[in-house]
Nucleic acid binder design. Structure first.
Lengths: 230, 230
DNA sequence: ACCTGAACACCGTTCAAGT
DNA sequence: ACCTGAACACCGTTCAAGT
């Protein structure tokens, strides 16, 4: 009676067999949901529903929603391209940071979270380790390198959070337009001469060009600015 | 009959007279709620309750909750100390940024919002204008100054968002402790030699010292890194 | 035009009770 | 120990209906 191309009839249950609950299963379900619907829909209730259980059951394996989101981000960081052997330490460093930013660009809402909740998973730590190594290779003293690596990651993260926010939602165009017109109005009101002089330079630059410039700036700053004594 | 220093007796109502709804009244109610309970409690429903109405009524005056939060932040920025005439442009610039950061420190959740939603209100624009002026005074070309001002504000904002997050909630100690122990464990596992070499330098530095260092670094970077041609 | 109550479509987390 | 349903205490936003 069932047409030949319909799935085989399931015995007893509709779903193929309820998978055992585990941290892995939860994180995987969260990743699927993230890919399909975006972070704002990666809620405890939805993850639970995908796993055929109630939200309360997840709390056996994860402390809370934020910790789960951080775990997902760390796994995504596995895709960051670690630098090959060619190029100067500086070039490799910038490429690494660009690659990290690119991964985050795909998930601006996770980037936003990472600004305040620093992930401490294996991939995050590996990235940090690599960053430190490249800075050391460039002759940056350890203490400087430690602070600098932090600053670099933070900057990359925030850029992804910001750039990714634009274009993410329908309102972002309005917000952008609102900012642009507010700046233009201020530039024209005679009370903001420097804003007027800057003109469109405020908004100029593609995302990538401006990002590279900021990484170079940061690196120049690092080389010129030792951390204070004690 | 009423003692001279008591308020006049209220006719008809308990409350002094229901204030007319207006954007001002809404923003003021939001500010009061922010001061008393923190941003997470500055919800449309609570603001409305404070104004003796329903949440739906607010939408006549504000586009949505985020726009309202941005308006509140802009007003808070009125407290940023604009630099006096003494000191070099650099010193005044750093003081201005420190003052901005200080204001945001008191409201980390607003700082978090400002990372992605740039406020475009009058106080934000005035701050930006002043920043541009100081950079120009330091001989930074206009186009460089435009990008640099953005970078400086962004960095200050993100620092407030981050530093303010710590100590804000009871879990933040745990998160911090989790990060510290994860880093220590990684440093000890033999696979992260640079992390091991860096040791506690990763976490060293008081908030203020590290923030000043980063501003100096940024400024050194700005002076050393012209924006790319067109 | 402004204001409202009610509804829609959700959240995270806790907890007593079961297995 | 693990899992669950139900409850607690909320959200932002829309909309038909009133004034």
């Amino acid at each position: 009676m069932t047409p030949p191309d319909s799935p085989a009839p399931l015995s007893r249950r509709e779903r193929p067999a309820k998978p055992a609950l585990s941290r892995r299963a939860i994180v995987d379900a969260a990743r699927t949901l993230l890919a399909e619907e975006g972070l704002e829909r990666v809620t405890m209730r939805r993850i639970a529903a995908a796993l055929d259980t109630g939200a309360a059951s997840l709390y056996v394996y994860v402390r809370n929603a934020e910790e789960l989101h951080a775990a997902v981000l760390d796994e995504l960081l596995a895709d960051v391209a670690l630098p090959g052997g060619q190029g100067s330490w500086r070039e490799r460093l910038v490429e690494l940071l660009m690659s990290y930013t690119e991964v985050l660009y795909a998930h601006p809402s996770l980037a936003r979270m990472a600004v305040t909740t620093r992930p401490s998973g294996p991939h995050s730590l590996h990235l940090f380790e690599t960053l430190l190594g490249l800075l050391r290779e460039g002759g940056v003293p350890v203490r400087d390198a430690a602070w600098a690596a932090d600053l670099l990651v933070q900057h990359a993260t925030v850029n992804a959070a910001e750039a990714g926010t634009r274009g993410d939602t329908p309102e972002s165009e309005f917000e952008d337009a609102a900012l642009v017109s507010a700046v233009r109005a201020a530039a024209a009101d005679g009370e903001h001469p420097n804003l007027a002089a800057a003109g469109d330079a405020v908004f100029s630059g593609t995302g990538v060009g401006r990002l590279r410039w900021s990484f170079e700036l940061l690196l120049n700053g690092v080389l010129a600015t030792p951390v204070p004594e004690d």
